[in-house]
Structures are given as structure tokens and as C-alpha cells.
Design a binder for these strands. Sequence first.
DNA 1: CGTTGGATTGGCT
DNA 2: GCCAATCCAACGC
Length: 210
Amino acid sequence: MSRRLPRSFYARPATEVAPELLGHVLVRVLADGTRLAARLVEVEAYEPDDPGSHAFRGMTPRNAVMFGPPGHLYVYFTYGMHFCMNAVTRRSGQGSAVLLRAGEPLEGLDTMRRQRGRDRATELCAGPGRFTQALGIARPENDADLVRGHDVWVAEGARTEPVAVGIRVGVHDTSRSWRFWLEGNPFVSRGRPGPPTPKQRRPSRAAPRS
DNA sequence: CGTTGGATTGGCT
DNA sequence: GCCAATCCAACGC
């Protein structure tokens, strides 16, 4: 049994917690007892005085969980059809969290396939909306306690790949490089601006020239 | 109370 | 590459 990350792990700035979450394992137990697990491979940090954060304009019914104690799950609904999940960071009253954007499926792949309606492992948890759908996380899981709850938590894992850094997806702010992912990991979402996707080099055959 | 657009995804051109 | 799907929070009047 691997240990869960303690409350103290989350009680820090999101920019510190985010990269350190990579490699750890998100564990989810469904109502029927089915256990699912995925290794965190892509995350983004959202800080209190960050215009790109839901918490920037103060507390509202929707983002209230972000202002609560660290180590809870903040789940929100967006684009009329998707849920995204975050690990709340910093102390109560602060409004800070880490968006969990992608995971590498480890356990319960068949259940994930059923919930996603897709077969390929790389399409199960690669993207914030896909990730929550694969793990069966929605409104009921908002505010779930990752440290002491029994529905979803983060267990200690191992990070092997180096951490890559870039700008966040869908956030119009190129000044904060707060997106972190595991370099070269195939389960990272392609994201819009994406990781510095160095155009797929196709082994050019005969060099055309002129 | 009406309007706007989003921390997205998947399917089609 | 473009765009529809589909809800609702946030904000302005």
C-alpha cells in the first residue's frame, strides 16, 4: 500500500505543488467499489492574484472550494458538457489550486474505456475533461477530501521523466509558465499551444533541394 | 433579467 | 484547421 500525500503537501503555493504532483498517482473508487488509478503526467498552477484563475475576482458559490482547506478536490463544469478537477492548495482563504490535466492509466482501464467510449489508452485521460470522465468524477466529487476521504485521493508514486514547463492551455497569458508535464510522456494532452511540439520530424528520404 | 464566453472535446472540411 | 455542442457563472443594466 503506497501512502497518501499529506495535507502539508498541498498547503503551499500552487506553483510549488504542481510540478511535485507529477508522477504521483490519483486513485478513484467508484460507488460500486471499482478502483481506478492514473499517474499524474500534466498539471497547471492557478494562484490567488492570477487573472487566469477562477479565484481572481474573489469567492463565489462556484469557486468556494478553492478558498477552503488545502488537499480538497475542486470540480467545476465548463463548456456546457465537461468537468475539470483541481487539487486545492495554500491555506484556507487563499483561493489557489492545481488543475489536473492528464494522467497515465494504471488501473481499471476497461472501466475507463467504458466511461469514455474510447479504446486507446492515450485517449482515456489525456485532457482535463477526458480525465474526469474516465475517472467518473463530476459535481458530487466537488470538495472531496483527498487526504482523508474514501472516494478519491493521491498516493505516492515515482517520477522518472524530467519535468517540462510551458504556458497554460486556454489561458491568455504568456507571462506565466505554469503548465508542467512529464517530458516525452505519451499520455500528456496535446493542448492548444501545446508542449513545444517540435514538428514531427519525418525522416526525409531523398533530400529534395532546389 | 439578458448577454457573453469559457482552465474542452470530437467530428468534419 | 474550423466549429458546433450545450450549460451556466459572471457581469452589466
